[in-house]
């Protein structure tokens, strides 16, 4: 299993690897689960309070279902670790952060300088997502509507 290379939270890491969604249903005490692209993130919603780690696997970087899964979980109030694993590349990091991922375990470790540059690239965002950043259109009208 790939190492966590970047983590943007201070709590203790969950040691156990995530179980599959199928196994999770039976293993009622698991605190970590692993979502594959075809899994339905909303199936986890009844169990969010006891989950501390959700891994979302990207078998190939071009399969973007994990972005929706991540946002759906954050929108439902999940505050535990959301870890992107698999084919995680430099140029997808910023989008993943915006969708609520706060840990990354790329299959092939990334160049740390390139990764940092990618995360810092855009001074603004055009739309709200799961990272709390304020969209440009809200800043333009801060006097009318906050946040």
């Amino acid at each position: 299993m790939a190492e966590v290379q970047f983590r943007f939270r201070d709590d203790e890491m969950v040691g156990d690897p995530g179980v599959t969604v199928g196994a999770f249903g039976e293993q009622s005490n698991a605190a970590a689960v692993r979502l594959e692209p075809g899994d339905e993130a909303r199936d986890l919603l009844p169990h969010l309070s006891r989950l501390r780690l959700i891994e979302i696997n990207f078998p190939v970087y071009g399969d973007g279902r994990g972005y929706t899964a991540a946002r759906v979980l954050r929108e439902a109030g999940y505050t535990g670790e959301l870890r992107a694993v698999g084919d995680v590349l430099v140029d997808q990091l910023a989008f993943m952060r915006r969708c609520g991922f706060d840990a990354f375990a790329p299959e092939v470790p990334l160049d740390p300088a390139d990764a940092q540059a990618a995360l810092d690239r855009y001074p603004e965002v055009y739309q709200p997502a799961a990272d709390g950043r304020v969209a440009i259109w809200a800043k333009r009208h801060a006097d009318v509507q906050g946040g």
Binding site: Y67, F95, R98, Y126, Q127, I136
Partner: peptide, 14 residues
């Protein structure tokens, strides 16, 4: 245009 520019969820659509 603005909403869709660098939309983080929709840059790897089918």
């Amino acid at each position: 245009r603005q909403w869709s520019t660098f939309h983080p969820e929709f840059c790897y659509l089918p």
